Computed example of a mutant assay.
Amino acid sequence: MKKLTLCLAVSLALTGLSACQTQSSPEAMASNVSAAVKQDQNQAFSSFSQSFIDSLWQVAPTWALYNGFHQYDAKLLVPDATSRTTTLNFIQQQRAKMASFDFAALTAANLIDYRLIENVLGSMEWEIKRFKSWQWDPSSYNVAGGFAQIINEDFAPLEQRLRSVLGRLENVPAYYRAAQQNIDNPTLEHTELAIMQNQGAFSVLSDELLAKVNASGLNADEKALFKQRMDKAVAAIEGHIQFLKQLEQQLKQEGSRSFRIGEVLYEEKFAFDIQAGMSAKVLYEKALADKARVQGEMAKITDKLWGKYFQEPKPQDEKKAIRQLIDKLSARHVKREDFVDEVRAQIPELVKFVNQHELVTLDPKKPLVVRETPEYMRGFAGASISAPGPYEKGSRPL
Results as ranks from 00 to 15, higher is better:
V37K: 12
K393Q: 12
P138Q: 09
K2H: 07
L65A: 05
P157C: 06
K393P: 00
M98V: 10
F101V: 09
I183D: 02
S46M: 07
Q23G: 04
Q94A: 07
Q346N: 07
S46I: 07
R323H: 09
A28K: 15
I261A: 04
V37M: 15
R115H: 11
Q23D: 13
A108S: 12
V10S: 03
H70M: 06
E254H: 11
T373Y: 01
R168L: 02
V351Y: 07
G296H: 12
A224L: 01
A201N: 07
M230C: 02
I241V: 15
W136D: 05
K328S: 05
T191Y: 06
I237K: 05
D207G: 10
P186S: 06
L12K: 02
L56F: 15
F48Y: 15
F147R: 01
E337Y: 03
E285T: 12
S203N: 14
R168M: 09
F90T: 11
G145N: 11
F380P: 00
L210G: 04
L111W: 07
E189W: 00
Y391H: 13
D290W: 12
Q197A: 03
A233W: 08
F272I: 03
Y66S: 07
Q94L: 05
A99C: 02
E342C: 13
T191I: 06
L265Y: 04
P79K: 09
L288S: 03
N152F: 06
S279I: 11
F353N: 04
K335W: 01
A321E: 06
F259T: 11
K212Q: 15
D327S: 08
P61D: 05
L251I: 07
N89Y: 05
K304A: 08
I151E: 01
Q135F: 08
Q311M: 10
M124V: 05
R115V: 10
L14P: 04
M230N: 01
P26G: 07
L218E: 03
T22G: 04
L76N: 03
R84N: 13
P26R: 05
V204E: 03
N89V: 13
I326E: 11
V78M: 09
F52C: 06
L6M: 09
R260L: 11
V369S: 04
D317I: 06
P397H: 06
V165M: 01
A35E: 15
K38Q: 14
A387S: 14
R378F: 02
M230F: 03
D137H: 05
G379I: 12
Y391F: 15
P397N: 09
M377V: 01
P173N: 11
F69W: 11
A109C: 04
V213W: 02
K328R: 14
A289V: 11
I347C: 08
N219E: 09
E358F: 00
E153Y: 05
K286P: 00
K328N: 04
E208P: 01
C20P: 00
V370R: 03
P390D: 06
H70F: 08
A9M: 14
L210W: 05
Q149T: 14
A96Q: 13
A104T: 14
K366Q: 13
A9W: 11
